[in-house]
Design a protein around this nucleic acid. Structure first.
Lengths: 207, 207
DNA sequence: CATGATATTAATACTTCTATTAAATATTAT
DNA sequence: ATAATATTTAATAGAAGTATTAATATCATG
C-alpha cells in the first residue's frame, strides 16, 4: 500500500512534514525519526528519499529562503510615484511575511546557528540583493536631488523596511508570553501593523 | 588541583563558558560535553554544579533576558522634552544591544523554539513590560493632545524602536553572507545605524 | 593531623539520533 | 506472467549526548 494519495507523492509528504517541523522548531530540534513518525512511515524512508537530514533541510531551506529574499524584489512601477512604490514594497513584503510567518524565525535562526550552510544560499540567490540595492539607490537619489526625500542611503531604507516587517512575526511568542497578549490581540496587532509600518517608512523619508 | 584562579570559581568559569556557547549556537546545539571540554574539566562537573543542562541554561538565560528586557526600561526624564526622551530611549536601547549583540538571537531563538520555558521568565520580569507600556502611553497621549505627535499607540511606538534596534544585530550573518558585506563594512553600518534609527523614530512621530 | 565537607574524576547506564544494509513488498513494463 | 524497478520496512551499527554513582583528591578547621 502506498502512503500517499495520487496527487501527493510520499516524497512530497515527507518534504511537507519536514518543512512544518523545521519551521516550528528549527533544524537542531527536528529529527528524521519524528518526521517519519508524523508521516506514518519508516524512518529509513526519509533517508531513502533525501539521504541525509542535511540535504532534506537544504531542500526545505532553499525554497524558504527563496520566498524570503524574493519578498523584497518587487520591481519599481515607473507609472507610480516614488512614494507609491515604497508603499507597495513595504506592503507586499509584509504580506509575504504574513503568509509565511515562521520564515523569519527559520531564516535568522539558521543563519545565526550555522552560517556555513549559507554559502550555497549565496550562490543560489545570486545578484538579487545587489540589484535590489542598485534599483533602490537609483530611485532614491532622484528624489533626494529633487529635495522630496531627505539624504539617506538605500541600505538604510531597505534595512528599515526589513526590520519593521520582520520583528512583528519574530515576536509572536515574546508578545504572547511576555507581553501577556492573547492570540486574538496578537492577530489584531498583525492586522494593524502593516499600515503603521508603511506610515513609519514614508514619514522617515520626509526631507 | 583546582581549575579556577582565586577570584573566579570553577562554577563561574562553567557559567561563563556556557553563556558564550549558548549565545553562539543556542540551546540545542550546545552540549554539556563541549562546555566541559572548553572549560577543561570533567563533564560530570557541569552537572555537579548545575544538575541539568536545562537549569544551566536557565541560569544563563534569565540573566540575558534581564538585560534584554531592562534595555527599554530607562525612565522618562521629566526635565527633557518628549522628543529628547524618545531619543534617549532609542539610543540607550541600541547601546545595550550593541554591547550584547548576540542577545537578540538567543532571545528570539529560544522563545521561538521553546516557548514553554518562558513562563518562568514571565514571572521573573513581572510588571516591567506593563509599566513601560503605561508610562509610554501617558507621555505619548500628552503630546498627541498637544498636536505635536500624530495619533498612535504606545505599543506601535515601542515595537518600532524594538524592531529597528534588533534586526541590525540579528542580521549580522545575513548581511555578511548574503549581502556580501565585510566585517568592517558591517561595523561601519552598526556605527551609522543608531543615528538612523533615532531619525526614523522621531520622524515617525511627526503629526 | 585527623576528619568532615567540598570539589573533581572515572566509569557507565540509558536514551536518542543518524545513517546504512539487506530483505520484503509493491509497482511497472514487457 | 514475470522480470526489472521502485518503494518500504526491519534490524542494527555507531556516535553523541545527558545524567547518575561511586571513588578519589583537596581543603579547611578544630
Amino acid at each position: 500500500m502506498t502512503l500517499h494519495t495520487n496527487d501527493t507523492t510520499t516524497e512530497q509528504v515527507i518534504l511537507d512534514t519536514a518543512t512544518a517541523l523545521f519551521l516550528e522548531k528549527g533544524y537542531a530540534l527536528t529529527s528524521t525519526t519524528e518526521i517519519a513518525r508524523i508521516v506514518g512511515c519508516n524512518q529509513a524512508l526519509v533517508h531513502y528519499y533525501f539521504r541525509t537530514k542535511d540535504r532534506l533541510f537544504d531542500a526545505v531551506f532553499s525554497k524558504a529562503a527563496g520566498i524570503f529574499t524574493d519578498a523584497l524584489l518587487l520591481p519599481m512601477d515607473e507609472n507610480l510615484s516614488f512614494e507609491e512604490n515604497v508603499r507597495r514594497k513595504v506592503e507586499t513584503h509584509y504580506d509575504v511575511m504574513k503568509s509565511n510567518p515562521r520564515l523569519p524565525f527559520l531564516f535568522f535562526n539558521e543563519l545565526n546557528t550555522n552560517p556555513e550552510r549559507l554559502s550555497l544560499l549565496r550562490t543560489k540567490i545570486g545578484e538579487a540583493p545587489r540589484s535590489l540595492m542598485l534599483q533602490t539607490e537609483r530611485a532614491l537619489n532622484v528624489e533626494i536631488e529633487k529635495g522630496t526625500v531627505r539624504p539617506m542611503t538605500a541600505s538604510n531604507l531597505l534595512l528599515t523596511i526589513f526590520s519593521l516587517n520582520l520583528v512583528i512575526f519574530l515576536s509572536a511568542p515574546v508578545l504572547q508570553v511576555l507581553g501577556g497578549m492573547t492570540e486574538t490581540e496578537y492577530e489584531a496587532l498583525v492586522e494593524n501593523r502593516k499600515r503603521e509600518n508603511v506610515t513609519v517608512v514614508l514619514k522617515s523619508l520626509r526631507a
